[in-house]
Amino acid sequence: MTNNEPQSDGGTPVETDTIRQEQPTSRLRRLAETITAPATVDAAVYVLYAVAVVFFVFPALWVVSASLRPEGELFSYPFRLLPSEISLTAYQQVIDAGVATWLVNSTLVTILGVGGILLVSVPAAYAFSRFEFRGRRGLLGIVLLFQMISPVIIIVPLYTVMSTLGLLRTRAGLVLLYVGIQTPFSIWLLKGYFDTVPMELDYAARIDGCNRLQTLRYVLLRPVAPGIAVVGIFNTVLTWSEFVLAFTVLRSESRLHTISIGVYKFQGQYGNDWRAIAAASVIGMLPLVLVFLGLQRYFVKGLVEGSLKG
């Protein structure tokens, strides 16, 4: 929050001077200058920040607040933004419903899924970036095309595929499915990072005696680390949050249910018990929020550094 580029404003007087010289000052022009004057823009941006923060944070905070109420307070008068006293009974309800299992399942699926996605997509992205072979562009096009297809669309045949392979109601099946579905986007993203690393680095490594695997491992992995971080974080969020595939693959196998399914089922049972639903929601989002708060810096940095050019 320090003044990173104070000079970015230093140029403004020059700019207005030039305009004045070139054109007679009209009333409209003066109005435009007032509107685009740094102070006016600063103020507008501050207002925007405030509105954005309220819009994006308030729902989450409200849910937290709702979940901590003593029973019945949500529907008592007067309305309170904050609980009169902290009560954890709603959380007890969620814990009794088996939230620990869901969290464990989600954690397992996420770790295995993201690990698998990286294991498959890093070598593939390397190949697309570093090899010249017939049909490379075509294959890349197909990968891009798959990225455009939401898994929701193919969920019906996916169900029969999973059933044929005997992967319904298995955690391994769900993980494999996530790897299969998320790989195209990850390859595409990672390839951009590989492309920014000069080929000379590969040549130098080869002359230094590396085979391709060693080149990837010792020389390229570090320069593309921001990309791997981005892809990792991205897929962590997607995998943790995913609902429809998990719901379809795991079916009624409740001991395998992930947090999304668990919370959904829970709210089905508790109907209008907003306090309990709020508590379940808080538990469902909290782990990822905590992880993400710690990692978002790398995420944004990686995205900015990478060549997400399209």
Partner: peptide, 8 residues
Amino acid sequence: LAWIVPGI
């Protein structure tokens, strides 16, 4: 933060 909350 809003983005990482599961859709459900």
